[in-house]
Design a protein around this nucleic acid. Sequence first.
DNA 1: GATTGACTTAGAGTTTACTCGAAGTCGTAA
DNA 2: TTACGACTTCGAGTAAACTCTAAGTCAATC
Lengths: 118, 118
Amino acid sequence: MQVSEFSQLTGVSSHTLRYYEKIGLLKNVRRNASGHRDYAEKDLAWMAFIQRLKATGMSLDNIQRYSEYREQGDVSLVARKQLLEVHKSQLESYIQSQQSHLAALQDKINHYHQQIND
Amino acid sequence: MQVSEFSQLTGVSSHTLRYYEKIGLLKNVRRNASGHRDYAEKDLAWMAFIQRLKATGMSLDNIQRYSEYREQGDVSLVARKQLLEVHKSQLESYIQSQQSHLAALQDKINHYHQQIND
DNA sequence: GATTGACTTAGAGTTTACTCGAAGTCGTAA
DNA sequence: TTACGACTTCGAGTAAACTCTAAGTCAATC
């Protein structure tokens, strides 16, 4: 599929897709006879994972590191697993901190509620 | 207290403190005879709340809006409460999404685990 | 009276992650 | 055969949130 369809399916603009390729997140994107990008099914899955990593606060820089590992094939399985484990534990403590922020917000809201008496 | 101590206590650099004042997050900071900032206890509490809002993903722009309300006094209590309630519900769904990302990461890690057989 | 250290302002520079624009190529449809 | 739409590259521009620099002031200390 070409860029417009891929963009549609992933929700990422064609500009951003080219940018991601330039900085090494997407690699080895196929080209058709006239030099246009021709994305494969597996690019969709990888792009979805990129989006997940990004949504959990991983920098494009780190995602790029993971992308490098991916390219190296099976020799990097352990490294990739470790990278994800570190990221996962960071995410866990991040979620915990967000939960305590949430509780503090609720307290503040309750406080306003008392002051307002509505 | 002056800027260096306030910076120490809040963990925010003096540059950033001045920046926050410039964009209207911190307002009416007292000055001493020689024109130096002289932060009060209540500035500490407000700064802590700014940091909490920021940590939960609120933009400085929105925090500034809240800061305006604060300055208006009691007439804005309802507005402030509403702003926090909106933010709180956004935070709740954000935490939920992070939790589902976390589960997906665990799945991926398990998958690597199987492949590695360690 | 000179030096030091902490402050002041205004404005320029940095980082991350896009986002856009210009100029050009290619295949199809009128 | 020319017009179109979708693509291409390269490089410049943008937004948010800092971060730093330069030049200057002021109080205290040597």
